[in-house]
Write a protein that binds this DNA or RNA. Structure first.
Lengths: 354, 354
DNA sequence: AGCATTCTTGAAACCGGTTGCAGAAGGCCG
DNA sequence: CGGCCTTCTGCAACCGGTTTCAAGAATGCT
């Protein structure tokens, strides 16, 4: 198996290229089958220019015959884009983020872009790893469905790739943010409880200094103020955005003998935990204590009793975020909109016990 | 800077290449900065061969200086692999699939492979679309976390890319399947209810002919048989694997005045729905009716009352699936293992009312 | 009919990496 | 001190598409 040799320009030596297992059908094969060049085939596939019907049909037949699908890596390399949107949420198994991802997936489906989901698990370091990974993979845009990164870090990344971030307000080149009106949502929740006659309303917050939590606390306070009820810091206890935090909050309040007739929980998961702890303490919801959540997760419909909640449609937030990033990668300035906030009254809230 | 010239082949015309916005730093730039060729830089990055410390340090410095990250598309094209595992589940927002994906994500994290999640929504057509998309994108392997595809279709795909599928038993080249022992799980659940003295036990099934559902039904029947209790088909009602189905099942049973003291639900979500419907009918769980689920979703811990369930650790199934696909892409034959089945007794089941 | 213009089409450059091959450099031995 | 072996390193082929450029064909116009 001897190869000849040339002086100035050695001719292409088509040696076997190592153990590279290629089996897929390539554009070139399709083109040969259809009797055209690869360029023409490419143009037909992408409708880049007009081509005679005859050739078009020949190529389409060849594509069908071989069941040809262009290699995404090659296309991505040539085009400099991957038709992929990176999506970083905090936990893939969480019902909250699940609904958001579902919204993103749904909106992206019809667009030819595919989502690439990763989870930051509320750790700044992990989130950075995700960002680097996504950028390496050449995603065309990134949605941060809530983020643990600093504003400055976000702005820096936004210079490399279009970014949409939810859960904060931040304006910068190549970056769009979407914030739901947490304060107003909290106001709506509180108004509902106040209308039912509650005066001693506990608030189960999130981690301290979490922006969402602060806004909702502000709404809590302003609602009390409007109703002429003095703010009692003893009624505000920290949580962790999860069931565990809701449970601890109830234990803490009851063990300290702080009286209350209703609880406003920072999110539905916290409310679930609160309900369970109340159950353990022998309190009935809503007869003894009313409980209201925030987010209106799908599962809240099926709690026993079904949970009253402030609805912000996480799924719709996801859809809006996807819509925005699509606008951005298309080079347009996106119209950001957020879904409306509404109160969903179910059976975990009732008139204060007379 | 004169280049040599050849006759037949016209010299490369380095024309401006249209409006292609490239901004990223390339291997070539790094190599030039470090004073080596691109090949050497590549070899250093991939540790393909030994290189003198001097050059290694120079290249590493250049990489750090430019914050260089190799372009994944180019690498994927050259290597013919993408370091990506496609994962198809049925619904990204479902707690069941969420836990599975979490397991997969967790196992893959430490391996250098990234998961690419897509959802089939229980539609064969959508699942095919996902498969095609994943293959186009050149994923190195695919995990089907349950699948609506036929065995034959699966085998066909397995010839193009390594596949791991959960929820069925199927052996073929390039394909590994993982099935949990549904029948045994059902047996465990039933034994628990029987031990508590229940004799009239309803079974809320899934869709008809769903393999999991059939296996669990078989377990249900065999448990009854061992206990010497005749099988009463009126106690078996169809569900849909969701809350809605659980609710309808309860209504159907009670409207038909079929007496029962316990319910075995095909999965936890169904059990949630059943609990709610029982609540609506004024029945208490577990005082009047005991309810047991299957899967032990995380949220079952926080139901009111906390749900007794058969645990198969969906997350661990995900981890095992990920482990298996990693073995396969590495060219090894995987050792498939599935997590053990165990009964988690909580508060939704109790002694039959005397 | 003759010339300008527009359409089609293919050859080859290019995207940014990896890698076979071979030449250069250094080490060891007789 | 020359020959043979290793070890490093660079050139250029390649992965599979897209796109520029230019040539050839077809059409339009006077």
């Amino acid at each position: 198996m001897k190869k000849h040799k040339s002086k100035a320009v050695p001719p292409p030596v088509r040696g076997k290229r190592g153990p590279r297992p290629r089996n897929s059908v390539t554009l070139k094969m399709v083109a040969r089958e259809a009797g055209v060049s690869a360029s023409t085939a490419s143009r037909i596939i992408n409708r880049t220019v007009n081509v005679s019907d005859e050739l078009r049909l020949a190529v389409e037949a060849a594509i069908a015959k071989f069941n040809f699908r262009p290699n995404a890596a090659a296309r991505g390399l040539a085009l400099g884009k991957t038709q992929t949107i990176g999506v970083i949420s905090q936990a893939i198994a969480s019902p909250f983020y699940g609904e958001g991802m579902r919204g993103i997936e749904h909106r992206l489906q019809q667009s030819g872009y595919a989502p690439l989901f990763m989870s930051g698990n509320w750790q700044e370091k992990e989130e950075i790893r995700c960002m680097e990974e996504l950028i390496t993979r050449g995603v065309d845009g990134i949605i941060l469905f809530t983020s643990a990164l600093s504003d400055a870090a976000l702005k820096a990344y936004a210079r490399k790739v279009p970014i949409v971030v939810t859960g904060r307000l931040l304006k910068s080149k190549g970056l769009v943010s979407m914030q739901v009106d947490d304060r107003y949502g909290a106001l709506v929740a509180m108004r509902h409880l106040l209308d039912l006659g509650h005066r001693r309303i506990a608030f189960v917050a999130g981690f301290e200094n979490h922006p969402d939590a602060n806004e909702r606390l502000a709404g809590y306070r302003s609602a009390l103020e409007s109703a002429g009820i003095p703010y009692d810091p003893k009624l505000v206890v920290a949580g962790d955005f999860h069931e565990e935090g809701g449970m601890q909050a109830v234990y803490q309040l009851m063990d300290a003998n702080i009286p209350f007739t209703a609880m406003f929980c920072i999110n539905d998961e916290t409310a679930y935990g609160a309900c369970l702890a109340l159950f353990r303490k022998g309190m009935r919801v809503p007869d003894d204590i009313s409980v209201i959540g925030f987010d209106d997760l799908r599962s809240s419909t099926y709690r026993v009793p079904p949970l009253t909640s402030v609805r912000q449609s996480v799924q719709q937030v996801g859809e809006c975020a996807a819509e925005a990033i699509l606008q951005m990668v298309a080079g347009r300035r996106p119209q950001v909109s957020v879904p409306p906030i509404e109160l969903v009254v179910r059976e975990s809230t009732g008139r204060v016990a007379g």
